[in-house]
């Protein structure tokens, strides 16, 4: 059992190490995310302050929205922006058939690599953002702009579970992007479609709770909610009991569905490659 997992663990470790090398990139990403967070917070603050009556009826208070913005900026690397860059290179150089016909379970292989890459990008950036928005800002007297801690300890635990599910979800989407890249011979199309979807439907552009009430159910059921909005709701403590179970069940169901779709289409892609030789 351990032996069977060895190549996948090795893939994970190698990818993690390469990603951790990019210290300068992570620092640059951190600064960019802080900047973004600050602009967004100033805009939200203007909306909330300008309309006192509406603020009372808004489903999130200003400080909750501010916390939401920081969590979204901190977990930006969780988004499935694009396919594995090495797959894109292999497709460009025409060596992709070689890569695919290895004696391993390709879905697991890709999924491990994607998880390691996302984690390697996520962990340093998230820690830096938490340190900045959660510690530096309150100490600098900007408590109103700060990231507030989770509502309670159980909420924090649920947030952690939900983020891990988001990681699995994101990796399974990256595998789908890999497959699209191999099929269309270009990484551009797939990410052009996924990027806007992930941006708006994960809550990154605007907390999903602020959308009109009529579309709330739809927004919460779609898969991208699990990449940001649902973890945020756990952190803010707005999901409890049956709704919490439902949210985690929603994430698990999408992971299962995307995994099955990914495995099936990967099988078909490989079958075609074996016949045509790429």
């Amino acid at each position: 059992m351990i032996h069977a997992a060895t190549p996948y663990l090795a893939a994970f470790r190698a990818r993690w190490q390469t990603t951790m090398r990019y210290r300068a990139a992570a620092l640059a990403g951190f600064v960019t995310q802080c900047w973004w967070g600050v602009i967004n917070i100033m805009i939200y603050a203007a909306f909330y302050h300008g309309a006192h009556d509406a603020a009372g009826t808004a489903p999130l208070g200003l400080h909750q929205t501010v916390t939401y913005v920081w969590i979204m900026q901190g977990t930006l690397a969780l988004m499935p922006w694009s396919c594995d860059p090495e797959i894109a290179d292999a497709v460009r150089s025409g060596a992709v058939a070689h890569d695919l016909l290895r004696p391993i379970d390709l879905w697991w292989w890709w999924s491990c690599r994607a998880t390691a890459r996302i984690l390697g990008r996520l962990v340093p950036r998230a820690l830096l953002i938490v340190a900045f928005a959660g510690l530096v800002l309150p100490l600098a007297g900007l408590g109103a702009w700060a990231l507030r801690p989770p509502a309670s300890l159980p909420d924090a635990a649920l947030f952690a579970v939900s983020i891990l599910m988001g990681l699995a979800l994101s990796a399974s989407i990256v595998v789908l992007l890999n497959i699209v890249t191999v099929r269309t011979l270009s990484p551009a199309g797939g990410s052009a479609v996924i990027t806007p979807l992930a941006l708006i439907l994960s809550g990154n552009l605007l907390p999903l709770a602020l959308f009109p009430g009529a579309v709330q159910t739809l927004l919460i059921l779609q898969p991208f909610a699990g990449l940001g909005d649902l973890p945020c709701r756990f952190w803010l403590g707005t999901l409890h009991g049956g709704r919490a179970v439902l949210a985690l069940g929603q994430q698990a169901a999408w992971i299962a569905a995307l995994t099955m779709i990914g495995r099936a289409s990967l099988r078909r892609t490989l079958h075609r490659l074996e016949i045509q030789g790429g």
Partner: peptide
Amino acid sequence: AAIWVLFHRFGTVRG
């Protein structure tokens, strides 16, 4: 669309 949603909820922003 995100801006539109915000105005829909809050009406105006600083006039």
